[in-house]
Design a protein around this nucleic acid. Structure first.
Length: 479
RNA sequence: UCCUCAGUAGCUCAGUUGGUUAGAGCGGCGGACUGUUAAUCCGUAGGUCGUAGGUUCAAGUCCUACCUGAGGAGCCA
């Protein structure tokens, strides 16, 4: 007999027929004569209730049916007598495929803290919350590929191990096969990376952008989607040491095209989640509301699904850095010195309290900030005609902050070289990159979307470590 | 890395101004129960009070250092 997945079972009209399901026990309840076993196989959020007449099974078998055990259950699908579900399976045969010692199995049929489940990340998939989160994670990954594929973008695999340390996006993890205790040294006493595996010092990538630009200046429109590594000692709810990033890069796009793409892309992904993950979103919405019950009304989040629809229904506010500074300077919290960093003059870097004010208080809507001062942005960004700003853009989301960072790229070789010199970027090591500006240079643009930050927003989870299966963060590389 | 808070049973937490034998709910185990929905009811086991020092007649409680976790800040996606 062929196994049917619970998702398909619940969608089918198979009442009266004989079915076989395989999955894991969530809870078992019961009385003298009858046991109720809630079974889940991960195919969907919902459990199927298995009804087992105690008299039809030997005691030994039912004793092994504990929370966490794996079962194969054969039986008839019938309309349920109980009120919690439409259908249920009256079991004729129960096989315990793998038992779970109830004395040792850590996941109980009760509410666990997210911290506890994080420490049991290998088992947290077996909870409603995390199975919902990771089904949505899958759907979003698929939607990203579908979006770009349908638009004619090519998926480009940029290297994870990089020989350049000039990507300029933060601290890097060294990749080496040298003996850490007694590495070979040069005459000057430095570690001699010429003797290392690659014959030079290498690191894990912090961005695929520079390689992405090489692809875009030939294939036209490309995107990368892969793991990214930052060795920053960041201990926050929105940073990971290993995270996944989507980086589209497009030839012949200017900053406006870039913004249009970013907005359309975000809306597509959110629409996809609403179309394909409603059951899981509804569960996560309920979970979030219960968690926030203790909070004051004005501190609670907008209901999850309402929040996602709101994004679809509203244009992102587009604002230059200069306009943002004006708004902030004249804002109440700035005048009353409520900001920890009071905005005094043009050129100041925006702190997250400022971004939050713009997104959550002033506009109550995603905001795209553009044209930042060149001093606070990366060397590769296109220099504007005013001589002091660059064609950068940050997409800011409520509750998340910066979810996308991007720019139009500087295509003029001389300007780029000058800027690299000013910022101490070693041009001689990046000839390969500069060749794009030497031969057939074109205006182009791109951005990076933090995949886990997207998931924070879509799932309503509060900590980025809860939207990636096995989070890597400072002092944490378990599993 | 900085600031704040926390660490007591498998989990979630209580434990008063330092004072005798450290508690509860859930979970586990045993039993009861004619269909339950995180079932219910009765009973029961379970603790080096994060680690190492210190103060004291006496430390879960006070002090110091360290470890781990959470929230916020910085770095950024």
């Amino acid at each position: 007999m062929k196994r049917i997945k619970i998702k398909d079972l619940l969608q089918s009209d198979a009442v009266g027929s004989e079915v076989l399901i395989k999955g894991w026990v969530r809870t078992k309840r019961g009385s003298k004569n009858v046991n109720f076993i809630a079974m889940n196989d991960g195919s969907c959020l919902a459990n199927v209730q298995v009804v087992a007449d105690v008299n039809n099974f030997n005691e030994e078998t039912l004793k092994e049916v504990n929370t966490g055990a794996a079962l194969a259950v054969k039986g008839e699908l019938v309309a349920s007598q109980g009120s919690g579900q439409k259908v249920e399976i009256v079991a004729t045969d129960i096989e315990v495929i793998g038992g779970a010692d109830p004395d040792k199995y850590p996941i109980q049929p009760k509410k666990h803290s997210l911290e506890f489940l994080r420490e049991n990340a290998h088992l947290r998939f077996r909870t409603n919350t995390f199975s919902a989160v990771f089904r949505i994670r899958h759907a979003m990954a698929y939607a990203i590929h579908k979006y770009f594929n349908d638009k004619g973008f090519y998926y480009l695999h940029t290297p994870l191990i990089t020989g350049s340390d000039a990507e300029g996006a933060g601290q890097m993890f060294r990749v080496t096969t040298l003996d850490p205790v007694n590495p070979p040294v040069t005459e000057e006493g430095d570690v001699d990376y010429k003797q290392d595996f690659f014959g030079k010092a290498t690191n894990l990538t912090v961005s695929g952008q520079l390689e992405g630009e090489l692809g875009a200046t030939a294939l036209g429109e490309i995107y990368t989607f892969g793991p990214t590594f930052r060795a920053e000692n960041s201990n926050t709810t929105r940073h990971l040491s290993e995270f996944w990033m989507i980086e589209p890069e497009m030839a012949f796009y200017d900053l406006k095209d870039n913004m249009d793409l970013a907005e359309d892309f975000m809306k597509y992904l959110i629409q996809y989640a609403l179309d394909n993950c409603m059951e899981d979103l509804q569960f996560l919405s309920k979970r979030q509301q219960e968690e926030e019950k203790g909070k004051k009304a004005d501190e609670r989040s907008m209901e999850l699904i309402e929040k996602l629809k709101f994004i679809l229904d509203n244009d992102f506010v587009r604002l230059t850095y200069t306009e943002a500074i004006d708004i902030l300077r004249n804002s109440k919290p700035n005048k009353k010195k409520k900001f920890q960093f009071v905005i005094e003059e043009w050129g100041a870097d925006l702190q997250s309290e400022h971004e939050r004010y713009l997104v959550e208080k002033k506009f109550k809507c995603p905001v795209i900030l553009t044209d930042y001062p060149n001093e606070i942005k990366a060397f590769y960004m296109k220099q504007n005609d005013d001589g002091k700003t660059v064609a950068a853009m940050d997409v800011l989301f409520p509750g998340i902050g910066e979810i996308i960072g991007g720019s139009q790229r500087e295509e003029n070789l001389e300007k780029l070289l000058t800027r690299m010199k000013e910022m101490d970027v070693p041009a001689e090591e990046m000839d390969w990159y500069l060749d794009t500006r030497r031969f057939g240079s074109i205006p182009h643009a791109g951005f990076g979307l933090g995949f886990e930050r997207l998931l924070l927003f879509v799932t309503g989870m509060g900590n980025i470590r809860d939207v990636i299966p096995f989070p890597r963060a400072p002092k944490n590389a378990e599993f």
